[in-house]
């Protein structure tokens, strides 16, 4: 093993014989004059952009407030006909208090087959990116292990707005911790492999619903779905 290592590194060094000896990696210039965000927006406009881009990639977007979130989630799950719903350990209990479906908790010993038998999963998120219509999960207590948002066919993701929403990809990376397993999700699973027709739903959840949860009362309770 160390053989291969020495060989490859020696080849790399020989190949770079033209690089001046004193040059350090930082000496190679990288201009970062690209934009940090594309356009100026208020917090509210950033949330609107997120909603628009999520919908553009066929996520179903809903808006609610702390007062309405329990009722909305109950409604989404019953409309889906979900008999069981996976709940990460740190999900605020009042979010799913009104839900009829059986709550299933992810255990270390849960097999993929067990997860496959669950209808829906409800999670929070780490951050959402408005310009790209992306939600990012980092395995936090309200999101759970990666597998629980992968195997069930229906994922409901709650985004606290405007706090968890950033404008752009650079802003998102700044907020994320690379030591955590990260999943960036932009719309439901899709493929264009057959004559380039976009088909939703191959292996990941075929339905992605995103709930934009505004702090406090008085937010728009309008429901996109």
């Amino acid at each position: 093993m160390s053989d291969g290592r020495d060989r490859v590194l020696a080849r790399v060094r020989r190949a770079l014989a033209d690089v001046p000896r004193g040059e350090r990696p930082r000496d190679v210039p990288v201009e970062r004059d690209y934009l940090r965000t594309h356009g100026a927006r208020t917090a509210g406009e950033t949330v609107d952009l997120l909603a628009g881009n999520l919908a553009d990639y066929r996520a179903v977007v809903h808006r609610t407030t702390e007062d309405g979130v329990g009722e909305l989630l109950a409604r989404l799950l019953s409309r889906r006909g979900a008999a069981s719903v996976l709940v990460p350990p740190g999900l605020p209990p009042h979010w799913t208090a009104a839900v009829d479906a059986t709550r299933v908790h992810d255990r270390a010993a849960s097999t993929p087959w067990e997860l496959d038998a669950v209808d829906s999963v409800v999670t929070g998120c780490a951050v959402a990116v408005a310009e790209t219509g992306t939600i990012v999960l980092d395995g936090g207590p309200d999101q759970g292990r990666r597998r629980i948002t992968l195997v069930p066919d229906h994922h409901v993701c709650v985004v606290r707005v405007p706090d968890q929403v950033v404008g752009s990809v650079p802003e998102a990376l700044e907020r994320l911790d690379p030591r955590r397993p990260l999943t960036w999700i932009s719309g439901p699973s899709a493929t264009s492999d057959i004559e380039l027709d976009r088909v939703e739903g191959v292996h990941g959840p075929r339905t992605l619903e995103v709930v934009l949860l505004a702090a406090g009362e008085g937010g728009r309770a309008a429901d996109g779905g």
Partner: peptide, 20 residues
């Protein structure tokens, strides 16, 4: 793919306790 963002991007660093 001419998308603003592709549907899924996974990032991982070594192994994570109990996840993956």
């Amino acid at each position: 793919t001419a998308e603003r963002m592709n549907p899924y991007t996974s990032m991982w660093t070594g192994t994570a306790d109990g996840d993956g």
